[in-house]
Structures are given as C-alpha cells and as structure tokens.
Design a protein around this nucleic acid. Structure first.
Lengths: 193, 193
DNA sequence: TTTTTTATTGATTGACGAGTCAATTAAAAA
DNA sequence: TTTTTAATTGACTCGTCAATCAATAAAAAA
C-alpha cells in the first residue's frame, strides 16, 4: 500500500473532512476518528500527519482563510476604480464558494475557537486586519479620513450576515446579503460626496 | 444546613456561574463541576436541580435573553416617536449590562450551540424574530415597505458588532458600535425621506 | 416525637476520546 | 538483495467528565 508522496494528499483530505464534519455537526465537538474516517483513513494516521487535534483545526482554518484570500485578490485584480475595489471585496465575501453552509458553520466555530486558542486567535486577527486594510485603501479615495469608520461598518455588516446565516436551515444565498451591503455602501458614498 | 426554599437561589447562582465560566473560558467546554464550584456547590446538586448540562445551558441562555428583552421593553416605554423606538432598540443592544465581555462571549457560544441543540435553536429564533419585529414596527412609519430590509440591515450590523467584539481582549465599549449603527440609521432615513 | 420531605455531597460508574506504540507492508535506496 | 524509509493501522493507555446513588443532615409536617 504505502506509495510515497502521500502526505500532501492525506493532509488535504483531512482538512476538507474537518471542515465538512464541523459544518455537519455544527460544533467543534467532532472526534479525530470521525474526521479521519470521513477522510478515508485511521485516526492514528491523522495524528501522525498533524500531531494533534489543534493542529488539524488550525490547518482547516488556514485553508478557509487562504481560499478566501485568493478569492479577494483575484477580484481585486480586475477592479479598476476605488469603488470597484470595495465592491469586489464585498462580492468575494458572499461568493458561492465561501458562502456555503459548511463553510459558514466552520467559520463561526473557528471564531469561537479563537477565544480559547492562541493560534486560532492570531489567524483570525490576520483576517480581520486584511479585510480592514483592503477596505480602507480604496475607501480613502472615496471618503477620506472616514475610511476607517466606514470600513468598520462594512466589516460588521459582513460578519453580521455570516452569523445570521449560520442559523438558517435553508441553503443560504449571498444575493440578498451582497445587495444589502452594496446598498449601504451606495448610501454612504452619496452622503459623503 | 438544609433550609427550605433553596431551589431558586441555587438556580440563579448556577445560571450566573454558567455565563461567567463560559465567558471566562471562551468556550462551552466547561465542566458541570467548574460551574457548580463557581456557584458554591457540588456538581451533584447542579444535576439535582437542572437534570443535566443541556438544561443548565438552556437556562443560562434564557436568562440572557430575558434580561435583554426586559431592557428593550424598558427602553421602548420612554420612546415617543417611531425613530425614538428604533434608536432605543439599538441603544439597548449595546448597553453596558448586555455588552460585557462574558455576556458577549456567552452569546457567541450560544449561537454556536444552537447549531447542534434544538432547544437552543428555538430560543435564538425567538430572539431574532423579536428583534426583527421590534425594528419593523417603528420602521414602517419611517420607510414603509422597505422596513423589513432595513431591519435586516440593522440587525446584521448589531450582530456583526457583537461577533467582532468577542475577539477583542480589551474591555468593549458600546459607544462606538452604537454610534455606527445610529449613523447608518440616519443615512437610511435621509435617503428614503 | 416520629415521619416525611428537602437539601446536600462524596464516591462511584460507565462511556468516550485524544494520543501513543508496536507491528506490518511495501516502496525506494544502497 | 539487503536495508532503510514512508505509510498505515489495531490495540491500548490514560484521563476526563456527565450522570447516578447511597448516605447524611436538618427542617417541616403529622
């Protein structure tokens, strides 16, 4: 059985399985065995590659954040004007890839995890800072010194929509959320023009 | 020792201890023993009065929601105009009593709990509906048919501020959050006047 | 006073789960 | 071919914790 070069494959499988299982259960109370089983291996192997449950969680978190980050970067590439940039970021947050039930649920759970686990807290800080500065940069051209405050408001609305969707049982659609945040942006810019 | 009429006292102590311990740990992974100890009794007694851990959590959740509800009702009593009402609700959400680290943290944790526990999910639904209709009612007079959408946006912003504050280590001040939501309301009303 | 009811806990049970380890298999290197 | 190295797992250890229970103490009721 043991073909060489399994490590990256196993790691990916475990990360995906982790997000899936957390989303499915709606809690971090998933056992390493459950995750490993979903990923098609024994729990011992999961420990072998990751060392422990915490590391598995961190890897899953990193994965979600890196997918998200890539999506934002891609959206920013094609945005020309400052306003386009802000809208691109908003769109990226509710894009189908990120705004899926398991991902939303995992996201919320990681938020909670970051209250008791240093590594997780650090990762979440990175996300928050990145989101903030991604927003502030184009907003400076649009609203000047109010950029920080406006960025805060947009970020709060985005996070708010996430948490509200975590509770729903139906498949979430990012449409409405996007529309609302964009509408807010529109108002904001008009008022400070 | 056994004086009669201990039950309500013990229950209150346990509910407070639960919120405190969840807030302290930042997770629902607190043992019944920890909670009972904080409340000054044995874990067996906690089980005696509540039956099980789930019931303790539910009682704590109910307590937070009922305190919150009372605060909103009190604020609504002195509000005269529709706009006053909306502002009163916003203020109540970030009032010092609710917007404390342990309460915010417990809140977030209960949000997560409601993903895996039916009783908790039901309670949270009650809160969401109440907030929504509390907002929609006065908003109808202010923005007509857009009331539902505006209520959604305000609710998202409120929840968003909560989740963002859960991550901070410094004492949260509701001032800034309140200011931002009120500012949003101002804009919204001006635009739809 | 005797009996019942309420309050209370220490000790125990039983389950579950994270992490370890020795043993196995097969590929790759020497 | 022999040896080393990567992959893999079943079985086991150890700790933790929710829940139970039998026993005690004292108030209240009879």
């Amino acid at each position: 059985m043991p073909k060489i070069g399994m490590e990256p494959i196993r790691r990916k499988a475990l990360v995906n399985a982790t997000i899936f299982e957390i989303g499915r259960a709606g809690t971090l109370d998933v056992t390493v065995s459950q995750i490993a089983k979903r990923a098609g291996m024994s729990s011992a192997l999961a420990h072998h590659y990751f060392g422990g449950k915490d590391q598995i969680f961190l890897a899953a978190m990193r994965h979600i954040l890196s997918v998200y980050g890539a999506q934002v970067r891609a959206a920013l590439l094609v945005a020309k004007t400052p306003r386009d940039r802000v809208e691109a970021i908003i769109h990226a947050n509710f894009e189908a890839g990120n705004f899926r039930p398991e991902v939303i649920s995992a996201w919320l759970n990681f938020y909670v995890l970051s209250q008791s686990m240093d590594g997780a807290r650090r990762l979440l800080r990175v996300y928050q800072h990145r989101l903030h500065s991604n927003l502030v940069h184009p907003l400076r051209d649009l609203v000047g010194d109010d950029a920080h405050e406006v960025a805060d408001m947009i970020a709060a609305m985005i996070d708010g929509h996430y948490i509200r969707h975590a509770l729903r049982e139906d498949t979430p659609s990012g449409k409405r959320a996007t529309k609302q945040v964009l509408e807010f942006l529109e108002l904001m810019l008009e008022a400070r023009k």
